[in-house]
Design a protein around this nucleic acid. Sequence first.
RNA 1: GGUCCCGUGGUGUAGCCUGGCCAAACACGCGGCCCUGUCAAGGCCGAGAACGCCGGUUCGAAUCCGGUCGGGACCGCCA
Length: 585
Amino acid sequence: MSGYSAPHCGSLRAKDAGRDVELYGWVARRRDQGGLIFIDLRDRWGAIQVVFNQALSPSSHATAADLRSEYVVRVKGVIGQRPSGSENPRMATGEIEVAASELEVVNSSETTPFQIEDPDEPDEKTRLEYRYLDLRRPRMTRMLELRSRVNKIIRDFMDGSEFIEVETPILTRSSPSGARDFLVPSRLHPGSFYALPQAPQMLKQLLMVSGVQRYYQIARCFRDENLRADRQPEFTQLDIEMSFCDEEDVFGLIEALFSKLWHDVLGVDLTTPFPRLDIKESLLRFGTDKPDLRHDLEIADLGHVLAETKAQIFRGALDAGGVVRGLRVPGGRDMPRRDLDELVTVAKGAGGRGMAWLPGSSIDKFLTEAEIAGIKQATGAEEGDLVLLVADRKRKAETVMGLIRQEVARRRKLIREDEWKFLWINPTYLFEEDDQGKLTYAHHPFTRPFEEDMSFVEERPYDVRAHAYDIVCNGYELGGGSLRIYDPAMQERVFQLLGMPLETIRARFGTLLEAFTYGVPPHGGIAPGIDRIVMMLGGTDNIRDVVAFPKTQSMSDLMLGAPSELDAAQLEELHIQVVPPKKPT
RNA sequence: GGUCCCGUGGUGUAGCCUGGCCAAACACGCGGCCCUGUCAAGGCCGAGAACGCCGGUUCGAAUCCGGUCGGGACCGCCA
């Protein structure tokens, strides 16, 4: 028998009592009692206690005396019920143990940089430098298994819905819009570069022209943008595109898929359909496009109430075209000054001007009684409540209030941790303002507008709704997509509204537009992020926990030492000359 | 590009605000010895850090200041 087919340490149970087994694994713990030595032998499936008894097997006992943590060993013995009273209910294998008759040290181990079995998390830096050991920690092994399982459930589900998985290239072409590309120099084409895909967006639409009808791919995507706790430079999407579909088809498919995932992995039955929330309403009431609805705090607009106010901070913001927003904190009158100051720090940390509160923070005296009453009414504040106030440019005020809302909920333990609050952000809007106040597309230029809204596009372009949607859960954006334009006249109209010159359009989207002249079906899609789904199911708030070999915030791989410099010959072959960044003087 | 937090033996922390009692404490781990029912085993003994790095202030710095490197959270960014 090879170790490959040997029983798994962690899978043995009481029913296996009496079996002669040969086990392979790592020494998780060792308890040397003199004539009796216990070790917990760990493999991917768990751990089981092995007993070395000096009286019964002197040679294996002698070898066991030299065992240390993380030694790789082979043990032969017999599974037995533990003596009554010595069972360990905390172990899945706690009713039984292996009475060892033979022990071989397959490989010894140096003392590891951190203890594999220590419940304390080692420093992030150390974990990443020794990621192969970090992944040996049972918590991380479980995450790897979970991710694998999620992938399998997804593939089974998509296959069952008659989707086919198509692989698209990793070496592809730079798309001039969107995020920064990761680029790969071409040896055969001096001065030309491949780009890694930010998403297989154009290719999946082309596959619809190909007649694939139902496409999916568990697709790696690359974006050279700054990292966050839920963002890595390379990540994985469940990329989906389907023909002849409407929004309901997409929603139904995704709701069924998430229901299956949550049911199979967590045993949780989600309520469908998921509620839908207009993006503008979400930004107003929750200060974000990915609201956490596990608590009931809501933001109120106070512009109307304070229209005539003389209070300087509000007057200034409103006159500058900004907004004033308020958040009721139930029972918040007892909030310590220190907490309020920390919320101000949150506001300022997000680039906001600050935060005021009522009653208190010495703004009361600048507000009329009617204004205070109005604020109470608009926010729903009652006796004993506190109202937090932010005055700023609209976008900034929303961001700041959104952060404060979530922070208040967290600190005051208002979040119902056992809930799964899925929702669709839908509808969204076709256009938004760019930095220069010019019209630009909110999603991408193929997003299908609401037909009926196009009648007023000239007068109120920002009110034109789009068939686009994000799926959100507990404050995380789990994915987004849209129905695409397939009518050439509509497409032309949108390009025209965006003021995009013909040659720009042709350069960026020529392939797709040409393909669309050969019989394009109506189509649409969505791309849920698999990393974030696994984060949710795995109960972690950090994407690094669900990626086997992640990058640091500065995009380094501390284990491999990537990125690294290249030698001159490699650079020459690629026709690359490195120009070091100018040192600031 | 910006704001904030962190960096002390192998690991996790304390000390830092209020400089000297700190060549630095505790736990885990590590080395040795003892122990036949332990399971975060236990008992005894022992080794191990001049406090990321550079510079400054000071009679004196892990502690204060500046810079720098590294890790983390967030804003901008991520159509």
